[in-house]
C-alpha cells in the first residue's frame, strides 16, 4: 500500500497460474498541472506533472513511462505482465516538484 491512503491504488490479481498474462491497474491522485493554467488572480500555476513512472516485478522492469502534460489529471494506467513467480509488483513515480510516490501489491503464482 501507499504511505498515505488515497494517494494511489493498484490492482493486481492476487493469484495467477505460471505463464498467465495478468492485468495491472493503477490510479494516482495528482493534478498533473500542465503549466498553462492561471489561478483566479491571473497568476500562472507552475507546471507539475508526474514525468516518470516505473513498474517492477520482483525488481525487474515491466514498464517505464515518460509522461508529458498531455496525461489527464489523476492519471490512470492499465498494462500487463506475465506471471512468472510469486512476488511483488511495485510501481513508483516522481513529479516535477521531486515528490515521489509508490504503490505495490503481492501476486501468488501457482
Amino acid at each position: 500500500m501507499s504511505e498515505a491512503p488515497g494517494i494511489g491504488r493498484i490492482r493486481v490479481p492476487p493469484r495467477a497460474r505460471r505463464g498467465e498474462v495478468v492485468e495491472i491497474r493503477l490510479l494516482i491522485q495528482h493534478p498533473m498541472e500542465n503549466g498553462f493554467r492561471r489561478d483566479t488572480l491571473g497568476r500562472a500555476v507552475a507546471k507539475n506533472i508526474i514525468h516518470r513512472l516505473v513498474a517492477r516485478y520482483d525488481g525487474r522492469e515491466i514498464l517505464r513511462a515518460e509522461l508529458g502534460s498531455g496525461i489527464a489529471a489523476n492519471p490512470y494506467f492499465a498494462f500487463f505482465t506475465r506471471a512468472t513467480a510469486s512476488g511483488r509488483i511495485e510501481i513508483d513515480w516522481e513529479d516535477d516538484a521531486g515528490v515521489r510516490g509508490s504503490v505495490g501489491a503481492a501476486i501468488e503464482v501457482t
Binding site: 488515497g6 491522485q29 489523476n74
Partner: peptide, 9 residues
Amino acid sequence: FANPAMLWA
C-alpha cells in the same frame, strides 16, 4: 477502481 473520486473516498 478507475473512478478518481474513489481516491477521495
